[in-house]
Write a protein that binds this DNA or RNA. Sequence first.
DNA 1: GACTGATGTAGAACGTGTTACAAGTCTAGA
DNA 2: TCTAGACTTGTAACACGTTCTACATCAGTC
Lengths: 211, 211
Amino acid sequence: MTSVSTEPRDTDGPRPATAPTGGSAAQRERRRRILDATITLAAEGGFDAVQMRAVAEQAEVALGTLYRYFPSKIHLLVSALAREFTKDVDRSAVRATPGDTAHERIMYVLNRRTRALQKQPKLTEALVRAFMFADQSVTGEIHEVGTSLTTVIARAMHGTPDHGEVTEEEAAIIRIISDVWLSALISWVTGRMDEKDVEKSIDVAVRLLLR
Amino acid sequence: MTSVSTEPRDTDGPRPATAPTGGSAAQRERRRRILDATITLAAEGGFDAVQMRAVAEQAEVALGTLYRYFPSKIHLLVSALAREFTKDVDRSAVRATPGDTAHERIMYVLNRRTRALQKQPKLTEALVRAFMFADQSVTGEIHEVGTSLTTVIARAMHGTPDHGEVTEEEAAIIRIISDVWLSALISWVTGRMDEKDVEKSIDVAVRLLLR
DNA sequence: GACTGATGTAGAACGTGTTACAAGTCTAGA
DNA sequence: TCTAGACTTGTAACACGTTCTACATCAGTC
Protein backbone atom coordinates (compact mmCIF):
# COMPACT_ATOMS: atom_id res chain seq x y z
CA MET A 1 0.00 0.00 0.00
CA THR A 2 3.07 2.15 -0.15
CA SER A 3 4.71 3.92 -2.99
CA VAL A 4 8.37 3.99 -3.63
CA SER A 5 10.26 5.81 -6.30
CA THR A 6 13.02 4.01 -8.04
CA GLU A 7 13.86 6.86 -10.34
CA PRO A 8 16.69 9.22 -9.50
CA ARG A 9 15.34 12.68 -8.91
CA ASP A 10 16.63 15.67 -10.79
CA THR A 11 19.17 17.56 -8.80
CA ASP A 12 18.19 21.18 -9.10
CA GLY A 13 20.97 22.68 -7.10
CA PRO A 14 22.20 21.90 -3.63
CA ARG A 15 19.72 20.94 -0.97
CA PRO A 16 19.92 22.51 2.43
CA ALA A 17 20.78 19.83 4.90
CA THR A 18 21.40 16.62 3.01
CA ALA A 19 24.52 16.07 5.06
CA PRO A 20 24.20 15.57 8.80
CA THR A 21 26.43 18.57 9.37
CA GLY A 22 26.15 21.98 7.78
CA GLY A 23 23.17 24.27 7.45
CA SER A 24 21.87 26.49 10.16
CA ALA A 25 21.13 25.26 13.64
CA ALA A 26 17.43 25.32 12.80
CA GLN A 27 18.11 23.14 9.80
CA ARG A 28 20.14 20.60 11.70
CA GLU A 29 17.37 20.56 14.25
CA ARG A 30 14.74 19.95 11.56
CA ARG A 31 16.82 17.18 10.10
CA ARG A 32 17.09 15.53 13.49
CA ARG A 33 13.35 15.79 14.10
CA ILE A 34 12.66 14.23 10.71
CA LEU A 35 14.97 11.28 11.34
CA ASP A 36 13.58 10.82 14.84
CA ALA A 37 10.06 10.73 13.47
CA THR A 38 11.14 8.25 10.85
CA ILE A 39 12.66 5.91 13.40
CA THR A 40 9.65 6.21 15.68
CA LEU A 41 7.14 5.45 12.96
CA ALA A 42 9.25 2.64 11.56
CA ALA A 43 9.65 1.08 14.99
CA GLU A 44 5.89 1.12 15.47
CA GLY A 45 4.63 -0.06 12.13
CA GLY A 46 7.50 -0.88 9.80
CA PHE A 47 8.03 0.23 6.25
CA ASP A 48 4.39 0.88 5.48
CA ALA A 49 3.93 3.04 8.54
CA VAL A 50 6.65 5.42 7.46
CA GLN A 51 4.31 7.55 5.41
CA MET A 52 5.72 10.78 4.18
CA ARG A 53 2.72 12.80 5.37
CA ALA A 54 2.94 11.16 8.78
CA VAL A 55 6.68 11.80 9.06
CA ALA A 56 6.18 15.42 8.08
CA GLU A 57 3.41 15.87 10.61
CA GLN A 58 5.26 14.22 13.46
CA ALA A 59 8.45 16.13 12.69
CA GLU A 60 6.41 19.32 12.43
CA VAL A 61 7.61 20.26 8.98
CA ALA A 62 5.71 20.69 5.76
CA LEU A 63 5.66 17.85 3.28
CA GLY A 64 7.61 19.96 0.81
CA THR A 65 10.27 20.58 3.40
CA LEU A 66 10.58 16.90 4.13
CA TYR A 67 11.19 16.30 0.41
CA ARG A 68 13.71 19.10 0.34
CA TYR A 69 15.73 17.35 3.02
CA PHE A 70 15.27 13.80 1.76
CA PRO A 71 14.35 13.43 -1.88
CA SER A 72 12.50 10.15 -1.40
CA LYS A 73 11.20 7.77 1.19
CA ILE A 74 14.12 5.49 0.44
CA HIS A 75 16.67 8.22 1.03
CA LEU A 76 14.92 9.03 4.24
CA LEU A 77 15.00 5.47 5.54
CA VAL A 78 18.52 4.75 4.41
CA SER A 79 19.71 7.96 6.06
CA ALA A 80 18.00 6.88 9.25
CA LEU A 81 19.69 3.50 9.00
CA ALA A 82 23.03 5.17 8.43
CA ARG A 83 22.58 7.30 11.52
CA GLU A 84 21.72 4.32 13.72
CA PHE A 85 24.62 2.29 12.38
CA THR A 86 27.08 5.08 12.88
CA LYS A 87 26.11 5.31 16.54
CA ASP A 88 27.02 1.66 16.86
CA VAL A 89 30.44 2.09 15.30
CA ASP A 90 31.25 4.87 17.70
CA ARG A 91 30.44 2.55 20.55
CA SER A 92 32.69 -0.22 19.23
CA ALA A 93 35.62 2.15 19.08
CA VAL A 94 35.64 2.60 22.81
CA ARG A 95 36.85 -0.75 24.02
CA ALA A 96 38.28 -4.03 22.78
CA THR A 97 35.82 -6.71 21.73
CA PRO A 98 35.55 -9.67 24.11
CA GLY A 99 36.47 -13.14 22.85
CA ASP A 100 39.64 -15.21 22.54
CA THR A 101 39.55 -15.96 18.83
CA ALA A 102 38.66 -13.92 15.79
CA HIS A 103 35.71 -16.23 15.30
CA GLU A 104 34.38 -15.57 18.80
CA ARG A 105 34.89 -11.84 18.52
CA ILE A 106 33.22 -11.55 15.15
CA MET A 107 30.28 -13.62 16.28
CA TYR A 108 30.05 -11.50 19.40
CA VAL A 109 29.89 -8.31 17.42
CA LEU A 110 27.50 -9.57 14.76
CA ASN A 111 25.22 -11.34 17.18
CA ARG A 112 25.02 -8.29 19.35
CA ARG A 113 24.04 -6.24 16.37
CA THR A 114 21.66 -8.86 15.06
CA ARG A 115 19.90 -9.11 18.39
CA ALA A 116 19.61 -5.37 18.63
CA LEU A 117 17.91 -5.38 15.25
CA GLN A 118 15.70 -8.28 16.21
CA LYS A 119 14.49 -6.44 19.26
CA GLN A 120 12.89 -3.95 16.89
CA PRO A 121 11.61 -6.13 14.11
CA LYS A 122 9.40 -3.47 12.57
CA LEU A 123 12.19 -0.96 12.48
CA THR A 124 14.55 -3.48 10.99
CA GLU A 125 12.03 -4.47 8.37
CA ALA A 126 11.67 -0.88 7.31
CA LEU A 127 15.38 -0.21 7.17
CA VAL A 128 16.34 -3.42 5.40
CA ARG A 129 13.61 -2.95 2.83
CA ALA A 130 14.77 0.55 2.13
CA PHE A 131 18.35 -0.63 1.87
CA MET A 132 17.33 -3.24 -0.66
CA PHE A 133 15.27 -0.87 -2.69
CA ALA A 134 17.85 1.85 -2.88
CA ASP A 135 19.27 2.77 -6.26
CA GLN A 136 22.30 4.69 -7.44
CA SER A 137 21.09 7.95 -6.00
CA VAL A 138 21.50 6.53 -2.52
CA THR A 139 25.01 5.21 -3.04
CA GLY A 140 26.48 7.68 -0.60
CA GLU A 141 24.31 6.71 2.32
CA ILE A 142 24.69 3.01 1.57
CA HIS A 143 28.42 3.27 1.41
CA GLU A 144 28.38 4.83 4.82
CA VAL A 145 26.53 1.82 6.19
CA GLY A 146 28.86 -0.62 4.46
CA THR A 147 31.96 1.10 5.72
CA SER A 148 30.68 1.15 9.25
CA LEU A 149 29.97 -2.57 9.18
CA THR A 150 33.38 -3.34 7.68
CA THR A 151 35.07 -1.29 10.36
CA VAL A 152 33.28 -3.08 13.14
CA ILE A 153 34.12 -6.52 11.78
CA ALA A 154 37.73 -5.59 11.13
CA ARG A 155 38.08 -4.41 14.71
CA ALA A 156 36.55 -7.63 15.96
CA MET A 157 38.86 -9.69 13.80
CA HIS A 158 41.93 -8.14 15.34
CA GLY A 159 40.44 -7.67 18.75
CA THR A 160 41.61 -4.10 19.08
CA PRO A 161 39.83 -0.79 18.65
CA ASP A 162 42.49 0.43 16.24
CA HIS A 163 42.17 -2.11 13.49
CA GLY A 164 45.44 -1.19 11.76
CA GLU A 165 45.96 -2.52 8.23
CA VAL A 166 43.64 -5.10 6.80
CA THR A 167 45.10 -7.51 4.26
CA GLU A 168 43.48 -8.15 0.89
CA GLU A 169 42.34 -11.53 2.03
CA GLU A 170 40.91 -10.23 5.28
CA ALA A 171 39.01 -7.56 3.38
CA ALA A 172 37.59 -10.24 1.10
CA ILE A 173 36.53 -12.34 4.06
CA ILE A 174 34.87 -9.39 5.69
CA ARG A 175 32.95 -8.65 2.55
CA ILE A 176 31.69 -12.20 2.35
CA ILE A 177 30.65 -12.19 5.97
CA SER A 178 28.79 -8.96 5.39
CA ASP A 179 27.05 -10.49 2.41
CA VAL A 180 25.97 -13.50 4.41
CA TRP A 181 24.80 -11.30 7.23
CA LEU A 182 22.79 -9.10 4.91
CA SER A 183 21.31 -12.07 3.17
CA ALA A 184 20.34 -13.69 6.46
CA LEU A 185 18.83 -10.44 7.61
CA ILE A 186 16.75 -10.25 4.48
CA SER A 187 15.54 -13.78 5.03
CA TRP A 188 14.69 -12.97 8.60
CA VAL A 189 12.89 -9.75 7.75
CA THR A 190 10.87 -11.48 5.07
CA GLY A 191 9.99 -14.31 7.41
CA ARG A 192 11.99 -17.02 5.73
CA MET A 193 14.41 -17.55 8.62
CA ASP A 194 14.10 -17.30 12.38
CA GLU A 195 16.58 -15.86 14.87
CA LYS A 196 18.43 -19.13 15.35
CA ASP A 197 18.85 -19.60 11.61
CA VAL A 198 20.40 -16.18 11.27
CA GLU A 199 23.00 -16.81 13.96
CA LYS A 200 23.74 -20.25 12.65
CA SER A 201 24.21 -19.21 9.08
CA ILE A 202 26.66 -16.51 10.08
CA ASP A 203 28.45 -18.86 12.41
CA VAL A 204 28.93 -21.39 9.65
CA ALA A 205 30.17 -18.75 7.26
CA VAL A 206 32.69 -17.38 9.74
CA ARG A 207 33.91 -20.87 10.56
CA LEU A 208 34.37 -21.81 6.92
CA LEU A 209 36.12 -18.55 6.11
CA LEU A 210 38.49 -18.33 9.03
CA ARG A 211 39.80 -21.89 8.98
CA MET B 1 6.87 6.20 -8.79
CA THR B 2 5.57 2.76 -8.16
CA SER B 3 3.48 1.29 -5.43
CA VAL B 4 4.17 -1.93 -3.73
CA SER B 5 2.16 -3.65 -1.09
CA THR B 6 4.02 -5.22 1.76
CA GLU B 7 0.91 -6.50 3.48
CA PRO B 8 -0.17 -10.09 3.00
CA ARG B 9 -3.49 -10.22 1.23
CA ASP B 10 -6.45 -12.03 2.69
CA THR B 11 -6.83 -15.44 1.17
CA ASP B 12 -10.46 -15.75 0.28
CA GLY B 13 -10.42 -19.25 -1.07
CA PRO B 14 -8.27 -20.84 -3.73
CA ARG B 15 -7.32 -18.81 -6.76
CA PRO B 16 -7.66 -20.23 -10.24
CA ALA B 17 -4.21 -20.59 -11.67
CA THR B 18 -1.69 -19.69 -9.01
CA ALA B 19 0.29 -22.77 -9.86
CA PRO B 20 1.85 -23.09 -13.31
CA THR B 21 -0.07 -26.29 -13.87
CA GLY B 22 -3.73 -26.91 -13.28
CA GLY B 23 -6.75 -24.93 -14.40
CA SER B 24 -8.27 -25.05 -17.82
CA ALA B 25 -6.25 -24.65 -20.98
CA ALA B 26 -7.60 -21.13 -21.30
CA GLN B 27 -6.37 -20.39 -17.79
CA ARG B 28 -2.92 -21.76 -18.40
CA GLU B 29 -2.86 -19.70 -21.55
CA ARG B 30 -3.88 -16.54 -19.68
CA ARG B 31 -1.24 -17.17 -17.07
CA ARG B 32 1.38 -17.55 -19.77
CA ARG B 33 0.29 -14.34 -21.47
CA ILE B 34 0.48 -12.47 -18.19
CA LEU B 35 3.99 -13.68 -17.40
CA ASP B 36 5.11 -12.98 -20.96
CA ALA B 37 3.78 -9.45 -20.72
CA THR B 38 5.53 -9.04 -17.39
CA ILE B 39 8.87 -10.15 -18.78
CA THR B 40 8.47 -7.98 -21.87
CA LEU B 41 7.63 -4.85 -19.91
CA ALA B 42 10.34 -5.53 -17.34
CA ALA B 43 12.93 -6.06 -20.06
CA GLU B 44 12.01 -2.74 -21.63
CA GLY B 45 11.69 -0.49 -18.63
CA GLY B 46 12.53 -2.35 -15.44
CA PHE B 47 10.54 -2.48 -12.24
CA ASP B 48 8.73 0.80 -12.76
CA ALA B 49 7.57 -0.18 -16.22
CA VAL B 50 5.83 -3.25 -14.93
CA GLN B 51 2.60 -1.43 -14.19
CA MET B 52 -0.34 -3.59 -13.37
CA ARG B 53 -2.62 -1.78 -15.81
CA ALA B 54 -0.03 -2.13 -18.55
CA VAL B 55 0.51 -5.82 -17.86
CA ALA B 56 -3.23 -6.42 -17.92
CA GLU B 57 -3.61 -4.55 -21.17
CA GLN B 58 -0.71 -6.26 -22.91
CA ALA B 59 -1.81 -9.68 -21.70
CA GLU B 60 -5.36 -8.86 -22.79
CA VAL B 61 -6.94 -9.60 -19.45
CA ALA B 62 -8.86 -7.33 -17.12
CA LEU B 63 -7.08 -5.79 -14.16
CA GLY B 64 -9.24 -7.80 -11.80
CA THR B 65 -8.25 -10.98 -13.58
CA LEU B 66 -4.60 -10.13 -13.29
CA TYR B 67 -5.06 -9.73 -9.54
CA ARG B 68 -6.93 -12.99 -9.40
CA TYR B 69 -3.94 -14.78 -10.86
CA PHE B 70 -1.24 -12.88 -9.02
CA PRO B 71 -2.27 -11.15 -5.82
CA SER B 72 0.35 -8.41 -6.06
CA LYS B 73 2.99 -6.94 -8.29
CA ILE B 74 5.62 -8.66 -6.20
CA HIS B 75 4.02 -12.06 -6.63
CA LEU B 76 3.81 -11.40 -10.31
CA LEU B 77 7.46 -10.51 -10.68
CA VAL B 78 8.74 -13.25 -8.43
CA SER B 79 6.67 -15.78 -10.33
CA ALA B 80 8.16 -14.51 -13.55
CA LEU B 81 11.62 -14.83 -12.05
CA ALA B 82 10.85 -18.35 -10.91
CA ARG B 83 9.74 -19.32 -14.40
CA GLU B 84 12.90 -17.96 -16.01
CA PHE B 85 15.12 -19.63 -13.45
CA THR B 86 13.42 -22.95 -13.82
CA LYS B 87 14.08 -22.92 -17.53
CA ASP B 88 17.75 -22.55 -16.73
CA VAL B 89 17.81 -25.47 -14.35
CA ASP B 90 16.26 -27.70 -16.94
CA ARG B 91 19.04 -26.78 -19.30
CA SER B 92 21.76 -27.58 -16.76
CA ALA B 93 20.36 -31.04 -16.27
CA VAL B 94 21.11 -32.01 -19.83
CA ARG B 95 24.87 -32.20 -19.84
CA ALA B 96 27.86 -32.12 -17.52
CA THR B 97 29.28 -28.72 -16.68
CA PRO B 98 32.64 -27.96 -18.32
CA GLY B 99 35.67 -27.33 -16.10
CA ASP B 100 38.33 -29.44 -14.40
CA THR B 101 37.84 -28.29 -10.83
CA ALA B 102 34.79 -27.53 -8.73
CA HIS B 103 35.95 -23.93 -8.65
CA GLU B 104 36.05 -23.70 -12.43
CA ARG B 105 32.73 -25.40 -12.86
CA ILE B 106 30.95 -23.26 -10.30
CA MET B 107 32.39 -20.11 -11.80
CA TYR B 108 31.35 -21.30 -15.23
CA VAL B 109 27.78 -21.83 -14.15
CA LEU B 110 27.45 -18.65 -12.12
CA ASN B 111 29.18 -16.48 -14.68
CA ARG B 112 27.02 -17.82 -17.43
CA ARG B 113 23.96 -17.00 -15.42
CA THR B 114 25.30 -13.64 -14.34
CA ARG B 115 26.07 -12.66 -17.91
CA ALA B 116 22.64 -13.74 -19.04
CA LEU B 117 21.15 -11.47 -16.42
CA GLN B 118 23.48 -8.64 -17.33
CA LYS B 119 22.41 -8.81 -20.93
CA GLN B 120 18.97 -7.72 -19.77
CA PRO B 121 19.75 -5.20 -17.07
CA LYS B 122 16.24 -3.77 -16.88
CA LEU B 123 14.70 -7.18 -16.52
CA THR B 124 17.18 -8.14 -13.87
CA GLU B 125 16.58 -4.96 -11.98
CA ALA B 126 12.87 -5.64 -11.90
CA LEU B 127 13.26 -9.24 -10.80
CA VAL B 128 15.90 -8.63 -8.16
CA ARG B 129 13.92 -5.75 -6.69
CA ALA B 130 10.85 -7.89 -6.48
CA PHE B 131 12.83 -10.69 -4.89
CA MET B 132 14.15 -8.33 -2.28
CA PHE B 133 10.80 -6.83 -1.51
CA ALA B 134 8.96 -10.07 -1.18
CA ASP B 135 7.47 -10.98 2.17
CA GLN B 136 6.18 -14.17 3.74
CA SER B 137 3.31 -14.48 1.31
CA VAL B 138 5.80 -15.10 -1.49
CA THR B 139 7.81 -17.75 0.34
CA GLY B 140 6.70 -20.47 -2.04
CA GLU B 141 7.91 -18.76 -5.18
CA ILE B 142 11.13 -17.66 -3.52
CA HIS B 143 11.88 -21.13 -2.32
CA GLU B 144 11.51 -22.35 -5.86
CA VAL B 145 14.15 -19.89 -7.01
CA GLY B 146 16.50 -20.80 -4.15
CA THR B 147 16.18 -24.50 -4.79
CA SER B 148 16.87 -24.10 -8.44
CA LEU B 149 20.04 -22.13 -7.76
CA THR B 150 21.20 -24.64 -5.17
CA THR B 151 20.64 -27.49 -7.59
CA VAL B 152 22.64 -25.82 -10.31
CA ILE B 153 25.57 -25.09 -8.02
CA ALA B 154 25.50 -28.57 -6.53
CA ARG B 155 25.65 -30.07 -10.00
CA ALA B 156 28.55 -27.82 -10.90
CA MET B 157 30.39 -28.73 -7.74
CA HIS B 158 30.29 -32.40 -8.57
CA GLY B 159 30.51 -31.96 -12.30
CA THR B 160 27.69 -34.34 -13.03
CA PRO B 161 24.05 -33.76 -13.92
CA ASP B 162 22.92 -36.08 -11.16
CA HIS B 163 24.34 -34.34 -8.15
CA GLY B 164 23.83 -37.26 -5.74
CA GLU B 165 24.07 -36.48 -2.02
CA VAL B 166 25.36 -33.19 -0.81
CA THR B 167 27.17 -33.13 2.53
CA GLU B 168 26.25 -30.70 5.29
CA GLU B 169 29.40 -28.73 4.63
CA GLU B 170 28.80 -28.58 0.91
CA ALA B 171 25.28 -27.37 1.49
CA ALA B 172 26.63 -24.66 3.76
CA ILE B 173 29.16 -23.61 1.17
CA ILE B 174 26.51 -23.47 -1.51
CA ARG B 175 24.35 -21.30 0.66
CA ILE B 176 27.17 -18.87 1.23
CA ILE B 177 28.00 -18.71 -2.44
CA SER B 178 24.36 -18.02 -3.18
CA ASP B 179 24.37 -15.25 -0.61
CA VAL B 180 27.43 -13.66 -2.13
CA TRP B 181 25.98 -13.96 -5.58
CA LEU B 182 22.71 -12.40 -4.54
CA SER B 183 24.47 -9.65 -2.71
CA ALA B 184 26.69 -8.90 -5.70
CA LEU B 185 23.67 -8.91 -7.94
CA ILE B 186 21.96 -6.39 -5.71
CA SER B 187 25.03 -4.18 -5.80
CA TRP B 188 25.13 -4.46 -9.55
CA VAL B 189 21.45 -3.75 -10.02
CA THR B 190 21.66 -0.74 -7.78
CA GLY B 191 24.72 0.55 -9.58
CA ARG B 192 27.22 0.02 -6.81
CA MET B 193 29.26 -2.64 -8.65
CA ASP B 194 30.10 -3.25 -12.29
CA GLU B 195 30.21 -6.56 -14.15
CA LYS B 196 33.87 -7.20 -13.30
CA ASP B 197 33.24 -6.61 -9.62
CA VAL B 198 30.46 -9.14 -9.58
CA GLU B 199 32.58 -11.87 -11.14
CA LYS B 200 35.51 -11.06 -8.96
CA SER B 201 33.58 -11.07 -5.73
CA ILE B 202 32.10 -14.46 -6.51
CA ASP B 203 35.45 -15.80 -7.59
CA VAL B 204 37.05 -14.75 -4.34
CA ALA B 205 34.25 -16.29 -2.33
CA VAL B 206 34.44 -19.58 -4.15
CA ARG B 207 38.21 -19.67 -3.78
CA LEU B 208 38.08 -18.97 -0.05
CA LEU B 209 35.34 -21.51 0.51
CA LEU B 210 36.70 -24.39 -1.53
CA ARG B 211 40.28 -24.34 -0.32
C1' DG C 1 -32.11 -25.82 -23.59
C1' DA C 2 -32.24 -23.39 -18.81
C1' DC C 3 -30.07 -22.73 -14.28
C1' DT C 4 -26.10 -21.84 -11.29
C1' DG C 5 -21.72 -20.79 -9.59
C1' DA C 6 -17.14 -19.73 -10.88
C1' DT C 7 -14.57 -16.83 -13.75
C1' DG C 8 -13.71 -12.75 -16.56
C1' DT C 9 -14.55 -7.71 -17.90
C1' DA C 10 -14.82 -2.77 -17.52
C1' DG C 11 -14.27 0.90 -14.94
C1' DA C 12 -14.57 3.70 -10.76
C1' DA C 13 -12.56 4.62 -6.36
C1' DC C 14 -9.09 4.80 -2.63
C1' DG C 15 -4.40 5.35 -0.43
C1' DT C 16 0.13 6.91 -0.48
C1' DG C 17 4.58 8.53 -2.74
C1' DT C 18 5.66 12.40 -5.32
C1' DT C 19 5.28 16.94 -7.57
C1' DA C 20 3.64 21.70 -8.14
C1' DC C 21 2.46 26.18 -6.62
C1' DA C 22 1.26 30.37 -4.19
C1' DA C 23 2.13 32.75 -0.23
C1' DG C 24 4.51 33.54 4.24
C1' DT C 25 9.12 33.89 6.89
C1' DC C 26 13.82 34.21 7.79
C1' DT C 27 18.76 35.80 6.78
C1' DA C 28 22.55 38.16 4.77
C1' DG C 29 24.15 42.14 2.92
C1' DA C 30 23.43 47.09 1.48
C1' DT D 1 16.09 49.30 8.27
C1' DC D 2 15.22 47.52 3.70
C1' DT D 3 15.41 44.20 0.18
C1' DA D 4 16.60 40.00 -2.56
C1' DG D 5 16.71 35.46 -2.33
C1' DA D 6 16.51 31.23 -0.04
C1' DC D 7 13.74 28.48 2.86
C1' DT D 8 9.05 26.89 4.78
C1' DT D 9 4.41 26.20 4.79
C1' DG D 10 -0.12 24.55 3.40
C1' DT D 11 -2.61 22.52 0.03
C1' DA D 12 -3.94 20.65 -4.29
C1' DA D 13 -3.00 17.55 -7.93
C1' DC D 14 -1.07 13.46 -10.23
C1' DA D 15 0.50 8.46 -10.76
C1' DC D 16 0.13 3.81 -9.84
C1' DG D 17 -0.77 -0.35 -6.76
C1' DT D 18 -4.78 -2.11 -5.00
C1' DT D 19 -9.75 -2.87 -4.02
C1' DC D 20 -14.55 -2.87 -5.16
C1' DT D 21 -18.80 -3.24 -7.87
C1' DA D 22 -21.94 -4.37 -11.43
C1' DC D 23 -22.42 -6.99 -15.28
C1' DA D 24 -21.12 -10.63 -18.96
C1' DT D 25 -19.59 -15.27 -20.15
C1' DC D 26 -18.65 -19.98 -19.76
C1' DA D 27 -18.81 -24.94 -17.95
C1' DG D 28 -21.22 -28.29 -15.91
C1' DT D 29 -25.79 -30.22 -14.27
C1' DC D 30 -30.61 -31.09 -14.57
